[in-house]
Structures are given as structure tokens and as C-alpha cells.
Design a protein around this nucleic acid. Structure first.
Length: 856
RNA sequence: GGAUUCGUAGCUCAGCUGGUUAGAGCGCUAUCCUCACACGAUAGAAGUCACAGGUUCGAAUCCUGUCGAAUCCACCA
């Protein structure tokens, strides 16, 4: 023992120092784990380099660090690769917002200068984030840290693009895409959110029809009218081309019949606007309709919109409706709830627009994928078990999404992001003849100004971080990775795309297991949001107040894979209390006993010794199994219970009077192995306490505990029985308000071992004597207790009667069960055996109760 | 319109392939500043496991339906 331990554990005093020792040791880097062979690799989901960590990050850092530390202790070559994501759209938006505060826009800077601004901003955020990851105790390999826009990863992105283009899996296409007028960029289908909004449905007179629409202004670009083939109301018009006058704006529409049309909705007539609706575009394709674009990329009306040209969509709608009304073309307006598309980043309404973009073809068979498409391959590797998703209900969700996947639009019109390796001749204004290669083809070429979807680069994350496309040693040794741990909210955005891109590029899966955690929510179950700052739990504040270990436990215990958790201060505080309990257990052991020689193989002497070692063996076994099955919450719960309610509450208390040579051995043995078992969950306090064991090596690389081979079932039973008797006596004391210090006389009425007597005497404050006064005495199984004058015999009788009744009911049920022939025929023998034993035990208890009642 | 999850003590949740009289933490009640810990100790109260059926010797656990909460997917003008 070097120094006295403080009365209470102060996390803030030790955590930074301990982290530095870990980091300096070099063991975060698996190359320094000398005897380790089997790789265990996790690629850290790279946080967006846009600000600071939130509680969701704390969640994944806790879970991933737990797995990494567990495997490192098990002797695996544990590698956790950290990194950050450039988060193209988010970074652009953040910096643009900052500029706006200064009254400027990105156009004041120009693309080059603006990108510099973004880079400055990102590099600041990265520093913050690195420190915060350290604060959580994360044992990741900083020497391998990557950034989605560093040189290596940029090379990977461009190489991938060129490869896929060669294989026709990336192509340029002119079609309807999701356009966010606020971000001024395209979005992928899954970056669009659908929300029901209160809207108006306008019924307008439209030639011979009435057409219902929520967006009247788009009707200016109509080129078709769709009705149902069986709708007799409109039969005569099908096949005709009509000229329709919309308050002075003339359009030509071709009438056609299609079974897709719902006769019940609106008027049963659809005005078809191919340039501004996905559905209508499909119609146009099928029936050969013209396309007229009436809305531009800023969300304003084009010159095709006639007198409304230049107006915003909103203005145009108002004015157009007014005009319709003026000439009596507006039939009626109804309120209804409309499923509107909004941008998942900024919340602006999405405009479906025609545009030339780059796409990943998910349906085209590829030689590289054994003649399967990206989609088919991605489904296959999950179906055949190459990838295991935890919890498995997400399999279904994954398959459903994959099966319905459309081509992925990967080009974005924002300035900051990966430039595409695409070049056009200077005079190719329409961008019709792209040259796809990493290097510029020559001076008379300019590079495509669009950038790539952020998820394109992150989908390469597991292998680009290991050096791909170079054939590096790391790539060979550490890919595929073992676990991808992330939130279920990015299953599609990220996990699915990693599977798609990695199976193509590497011919293998990116990871063997996917562990999906839930979202951290507020106490009432709502999402923590920036608009309600009081609901946000800042991990750094919690670390300051309660320590990192307490925060980590609060994110582990009581959680299960895929399920959301509610987090609040009181919860974290209760785990702070646990950490302090562990601290004081250790403090007691260290200050009471010198470290005994040879304690790693303790020799139990008493029944209690044997019982606690048996329980502890079981704990080691179950914790290991739970970790292997990703049941971290359960593992935490179990260890918590053992430490507090078996080891501290009973064994430690017993060691205070049952003085044997075995005690210091066993106390040190169990304590040391508790520190090992709990290290992956609460690394700081365990490593700090470990120092008092004077070990050569740090706990972080100490071997994972193995069972000691203690299996003393009889002694365990004795221990349980003793606890029961002691609790019963304590209960009586409480009921009759015997002073805690007062010693009760008792006579033994059945055989009871000397060890048992000692336990009862000390823990229930009993003095054994044959001379107890009959008055005010009560009989308990094994004992007659004299409770002095305090006892109320009537009250005691009533208490016992109640207990007897309970037991009687239970016994009746059990007896009936055991006599049931069907039960005997069907139940497994061990269950029957168990029940018979229980029946005997309870019968004995019942008889004892009767005896006690007679005595009163 | 498809799909999923959840509904267990006042609150937050465990309970994995059906087998003790259903558990924990917080809160609550009572007694204690007992020589590791008041971030503590001891004892206790508290649940028809949403509801209704079914399968089974046996159901909180499996199946069906109902009600309630939430989430995801989807091109309803």
C-alpha cells in the first residue's frame, strides 16, 4: 500500500492522469500487444467534425470501448480506429450560418476561400472531439486516426468512383431528383423525410375536368391528364389532346387512362406534371409526355410559367389561385393532411426537379459481384449469415429497405466535399461528354464542380481507413472488422451502404457483426433537441459531476440492444454511488490486510469461503458469456449485484468476525478479479484501484479472469439458509423495535454448526444460552428467541398465521402439481426433481411454523 | 397502405431458447451518524406482468385478437 485512499472516490482527480498513462503505454496500438494473435477490430463511427460530442456519442464510445477492452484483456489483437467525418452538407450549413451572422454569404468568399473557412472550422472541431473522446476513456489507436477527407481517403473515394464507373455501376442520368432549395443541392431518397402537414386541396376547373391538387402552381407545367380506365365519367376524352386554359395560361395535355389512378381521391382526375413529380415522371415515361419545367433550382418560377416567372413558389401559388378565382375556375378548397417531403438537414420542403446527376446503379449485375447486383449481394451476405445483425429484428427492416432500393444519387451541388474525378472539355457546356479518371486529362479540361454525397466516403470507411486501395499490411490483417457498433437510426444511411460498397470493392463483408444501440432520450421519452436546451444531457457536464465511469454504467445497465433508453441525472448519480462503493470495499480490504502471498489461488476454509468463491465463479462465467452475446446491460447488472449485495453486504461483513487465514486471500482474490471483470465497463476507477495491488502491468492489459473451479453446492445452500435465518431475526427485531445494539438471548432448538452459530450471533446480535425466559419468547426455525418484554404475543401470532396461510396455499398447489400424471409424464426429470425437493423443504418449514404457533 | 417495437411495483427498466411464491435501481416508510462507505447500514410496504381468448402438465415468456404508446418504410394527385 502506497498511500491512504480517500474516503470518497474523486473521479475528476484521477481520470485525466490515468488516460495519459494508458495512451503513453502504447497499448491502444495492437502492434504493441506482443502475444496477441487473433484480431478484433472496430471502426469507430466517425463523428461529424461539426462541433462537439453529445450523449449519443458517449453511448457508442462506452459500448465500443467495452468490447475493445474486453477483447484486449482476452488476449486478442484489439484495434479500434478513430476518426472524424467531414459531413459535407452539415459543415457547409454550419459555416454558412456563421457567415450569415456576420452579414455575409459564401458568394462573398468564392468557392476556394469558402472551403478554407470550412476547413478551419472542421479542424477546430476535430481538436474538441479528440479531447472529448479521450474524456470518455476510449482506448482507440490514435496513431491510426483518419479523416474522411484526408489524402488517403480522398484517393480511396476517387479510385472507387473510377472503378465503379468502369463497371457501369456509376452513371450520369437526367431525371427527377429530390432537390432542396435551401441547401441548393440534391438529396438521396433516404435523406428525405416525410411529414404529414395540414394543407389545402384546390379543386380547379380544368377544361372538361375538375382537377384536385395541393400544388396549383405546378399545373402550369402539366402535359397530361390521367384517369382510371374504368371510370365512365371521362371515357370519351381518353386518347385526346386537349388545350386547357388556366386563367389565361394555355397548356396542352394528353389524356390517358391508367389503373394507378384512384377514382375515389379528389375528382378521380390527375393533372400530370412530369417535371415536378416522381409519379408523374413515371407516367410521362410510360405514355410519352412532354416535360415542361416551371420551377427552377432556387424554388422560383421559370419563364415557362408565363406571367408568374420569377415569383417564388409560394407567391406564384397565391397569385395563380387568385387569378383562377377571378375567372371562376376555382371550384372549391378543402383542408387535408398531406404527406410532404422535407430535407432531413434543414427541414425545407423538397422540390422534385429534373436534373442531370450522377447515380450508383444498385440493380445492374456486376462481374465483380459474381454476376449479382449491389443490391442482391448486400441481401445475400446478411441472409447467409456472413453478417450478423444484433438485435436480429433489424434483419427484416434491412431486407425491406434493400429490396426497395432505387439508384443512389451521389452528386451534390455544395462546395465543400469530395470533388468527383470527372472532367469536361471547356467547350462542353452541357456536360455531355465526361471523362472519368483521377488525373486531369489536360489543360483544356475542367473538373466537375459537383461534390459527392458524404455517405459515399463513409461507406468505404472500414477499408479506406486501413489503406485501400494500397494493399497494406493493415488491410490484410485487420479487414474484415469484427463489429460495427452504431445507432439504428443510421442503419440505412451508413450500415447498408458500407455493406454495398465493401462487398463490391473488397469482395468481402465490411464487418462480421452489427450491433445497433438505441437512442438516448429524455426522462419523458422525447428526443433531446437543441431547441430545448434544458432537456439536453451534456456528457461532459455529467463527467464533471459524477465521473466518466458512472456515466458509462448509466449507459450500459438497464439498456438492451436496439431499444431506446431514458437518461437523467439521478440515474447517473446512483452509478456514481456504486463506483464509490467499490472504492470503499477496496479501501477496507487494502487498509485491513496486507496483500497475502499466493492469493491468486485461494484456499477456502469455511462454508462461507466456499460459498462466495462458488458464486464468484458463476459470475465470471456468466459475465463472459454475456459479453460474447452482446448482453452488456445484463452483465453490468449482475456484477453490480454481486459486488454490492453478496461481496460487500455479506462476505465483507462476515470477514470482520470470522477470522481465518483464508480471508485475506479470498478478499484480495475476489477484489482483483472484480477489477478485471469490471474494467471494460468502468476503466478509470478499476485501473486506479489496481495500482494498490503493486502489479507490474496495467490492468488494461491484464488477462481476463478465468474460473477458479470452485463448485461447492452444499456450502452455497448453507450460506443461503444462514442469510435467511439472519434476515428473519433482523425482521423480528425491526417489528418489535429492539434497539440495534441490544443483544438477544437465544436457545438452539435444532442442530446448527458452530460456524452457523457464529454467523447468527454476529450478524443478528444474538447471545446463545440455554436459559431464556419463556415469557416474550418466540420460536424461529432452529432458535428460540427471547425478545425481552417488547414482544406482543398476539401480534406475533397473527403474523405467523398469515405466513402459515401463504405457505399452505403454496403447498397445496405444489402438491397438486406433483401428483399430476401429465406433469410427471411431460416435464423434464430435473424439473420434477427440483419441485419434489422444494416440496420437502417447504413442508418442513410449514411444520416448524405450526410448532411455533403451538408454542405461543 | 406495409412493417417493427413497447405496454412488468409511484418512476426508469431487467427478465435471452416457457419450469422457484416475478427482480433491480430510484422514490417511499421505519430504525440507525455500528471502527470501508450517510454517495452508507438494516428491515419493510408496494405488481390480477395492458385486456380477452388459445396452445401446454406448466405462460410475464409462445399463438390470435382488442386497446394504448412510439418508430421506420411507402410515388396517393
Amino acid at each position: 500500500m502506497e498511500k491512504e485512499l480517500a474516503k470518497a472516490y474523486d473521479a475528476s482527480k484521477v481520470e485525466d492522469e490515468i488516460y495519459k498513462e494508458w495512451e503513453d503505454s502504447g497499448f491502444f496500438n495492437p502492434d504493441n500487444l506482443k502475444d496477441a494473435k487473433k484480431p478484433f477490430v472496430i471502426s469507430m463511427p466517425p463523428p461529424n467534425a461539426t462541433g462537439k460530442l453529445h450523449i449519443g456519442h458517449a453511448m457508442f464510445l462506452t459500448l465500443e470501448d467495452l468490447m475493445i477492452r474486453y477483447h484486449r484483456m482476452k488476449g486478442d489483437k484489439a484495434l479500434w480506429i478513430p476518426g472524424t467525418d467531414h459531413a459535407a452538407i452539415a459543415s457547409n450549413a454550419k459555416v454558412e450560418a456563421q457567415l450569415k451572422e456576420k452579414g455575409k454569404t459564401k458568394y462573398d468568399f468564392g468557392q476556394e476561400k469558402f472551403i478554407e473557412e470550412v476547413q478551419n472550422y472542421i479542424s477546430n472541431s476535430q481538436d474538441t472531439i479528440r479531447n472529448q473522446i479521450r474524456k470518455m476513456g476510449s482506448s482507440c489507436d490514435w496513431s491510426r486516426e483518419r479523416f474522411t477527407m484526408d489524402e488517403g481517403l480522398t484517393n480511396a473515394v476517387q479510385t472507387m468512383f473510377v472503378d465503379m464507373h468502369k463497371d457501369d455501376l456509376i452513371y450520369q442520368g437526367f431525371r427527377i431528383v429530390n432537390w432542396c432549395p435551401h441547401c441548393e443541392s440534391t438529396l438521396a431518397d433516404d435523406e428525405v423525410e416525410h411529414k404529414d402537414q395540414d394543407a389545402q386541396l384546390y379543386y380547379m376547373k380544368y377544361g372538361p375536368f375538375i382537377v384536385a391538387t395541393s400544388r396549383p402552381e405546378t399545373k402550369l407545367g402539366d402535359t397530361g391528364v390521367a384517369v382510371h380506365p374504368k371510370d365512365d365519367r371521362y371515357k370519351e376524352y381518353v386518347g385526346q389532346v386537349l388545350e386547357v386554359d388556366l386563367a389565361g395560361h394555355k397548356i396542352k395535355v394528353k389524356v390517358f387512362a391508367d389503373p394507378e389512378v384512384d377514382q375515389e381521391f379528389g375528382s378521380g382526375v390527375i393533372g400530370v406534371t412530369p417535371a415536378h413529380s416522381q409519379v408523374d415522371y413515371a407516367f410521362a415515361d410510360k405514355y410519352g409526355l412532354e416535360m415542361i419545367q416551371v420551377i427552377d433550382q432556387q424554388g422560383n418560377m421559370t419563364k415557362e410559367a408565363g406571367k408568374y416567372a420569377g415569383q417564388s413558389v409560394k407567391e406564384a401559388r397565391k397569385n395563380f389561385v387568385k387569378d383562377l378565382e377571378a375567372v371562376g375556375l376555382l371550384d372549391k378548397v378543402e383542408d387535408y393532411s398531406q404527406a410532404t417531403s422535407i430535407c432531413y438537414r434543414c427541414g425545407a420542403a423538397i422540390e422534385p426537379l429534373m436534373s442531370k446527376q450522377w447515380f450508383v446503379n444498385v440493380n445492374k449485375a456486376s462481374k465483380k459481384l459474381g454476376k449479382q447486383s449491389l443490391k442482391e449481394k448486400s441481401i445475400e451476405v446478411v441472409k447467409n449469415g456472413d453478417i450478423n445483425i444484433v438485435p436480429d429484428r433489424f434483419n427484416k427492416i434491412y431486407f425491406n429497405w434493400m429490396e426497395n432500393l432505387h439508384d443512389w444519387c451521389i452528386s451534390r451541388q455544395i462546395w465543400f466535399g469530395h470533388r468527383m474525378p470527372v472532367w469536361y472539355k471547356l467547350d462542353d457546356k452541357e456536360k455531355n461528354s465526361p471523362v472519368v479518371q483521377v488525373e486531369s486529362p489536360g489543360k483544356d479540361y475542367i473538373q466537375e464542380s459537383d461534390t459527392l454525397d458524404t455517405w459515399f466516403s463513409s461507406s468505404l470507411w472500414t477499408f479506406s481507413t486501413l489503406g485501400w486501395p494500397e494493399k497494406t499490411k493493415d488491410l490484410k490483417e485487420f479487414h474484415p472488422t469484427q463489429v460495427m457498433e452504431t445507432g439504428y437510426d443510421i442503419l440505412f444511411f451508413w450500415v447498408a451502404r458500407m455493406i454495398m460498397m465493401t462487398t463490391y470493392a473488397m469482395g468481402e463483408v465490411p464487418f462480421e457483426n452489427v450491433y445497433l444501440h438505441g437512442l438516448v432520450r429524455t426522462r419523458d421519452g422525447s428526443k433531446m433537441s437543441k431547441s430545448k436546451p434544458e432537456t439536453i444531457i451534456d456528457p461532459l457536464d455529467m463527467i464533471k459531476d459524477y465521473g466518466t465511469d458512472a456515466l458509462r454504467l448509466s449507459l450500459l445497465i438497464g439498456t438492451s440492444p436496439g431499444n431506446d433508453i431514458k437518461l437523467y441525472k439521478e440515474k447517473i448519480a446512483s452509478y456514481r454511488n456504486f463506483v464509490n462503493k467499490l472504492w470503499n470495499v477496496s479501501r477496507f480490504i487494502f487498509s485491513t490486510y496486507e496483500k497475502p502471498a499466493g492469493y491468486s489461488d485461494p484456499q477456502p476454509e469455511t462454508a462461507i469461503d466456499k460459498a462466495i468463491l462458488t458464486l464468484f465463479d458463476d459470475l465470471i462465467n456468466k459475465t463472459t458469456k454475456d459479453f460474447d452475446k452482446f448482453q452488456f446491460g445484463q452483465a453490468g447488472d449482475r456484477v453490480y449485484d454481486f459486488v454490492w449485495h453478496e461481496f460487500a453486504d455479506w462476505y465483507l461483513e462476515i470477514s470482520k468476525f470470522e477470522k481465518t487465514e483464508s480471508k485475506p486471500q479470498i478478499l484480495y482474490y475476489i477484489l482483483e478479479n472484480i477489477l478485471r471483470l469490471m474494467h471494460p465497463m468502468i476503466p478509470f476507477v478499476t485501473e486506479t484501484l489496481w495500482k494498490n495491488l503493486d502489479k507490474k502491468e496495467m490492468l488494461m492489459i491484464a488477462p481476463w479472469p478465468e474460473q477458479g473451479g470452485y463448485d461447492h453446492k452444499e456450502e452455497l445452500k448453507t450460506f443461503r439458509k444462514a442469510k435467511e435465518i439472519i434476515t428473519d431475526i433482523r425482521n423480528l427485531r425491526a417489528v418489535y423495535q429492539v434497539k440495534p445494539k441490544e443483544i438477544i438471548n437465544a436457545k438452539i432448538t435444532k442442530e446448527i454448526s458452530a460456524e452457523g452459530q457464529q454467523l447468527i450471533a454476529n450478524l443478528a446480535k444474538i447471545n446463545f444460552t440455554n436459559d431464556i425466559s419463556k415469557k416474550g419468547s418466540v420460536s424461529l426455525e432452529y432458535l428460540d428467541l427471547a425478545l425481552g418484554e417488547v414482544i406482543d404475543l398476539d401480534q406475533e401470532k397473527a403474523r405467523l398465521e398469515k405466513e402459515k396461510k401463504n405457505l399452505e396455499n403454496y403447498l397445496t398447489g405444489l402438491e397438486k402439481k406433483i401428483k399430476n400424471i401429465k406433469y410427471l409424464d411431460n416435464a423434464p426429470p430435473n424439473i420434477v426433481e427440483q419441485d419434489k425437493l422444494r416440496l420437502e423443504e417447504k413442508k418442513a418449514e410449514f411444520e416448524e411454523l405450526e410448532r411455533q404457533l403451538d408454542a405461543i
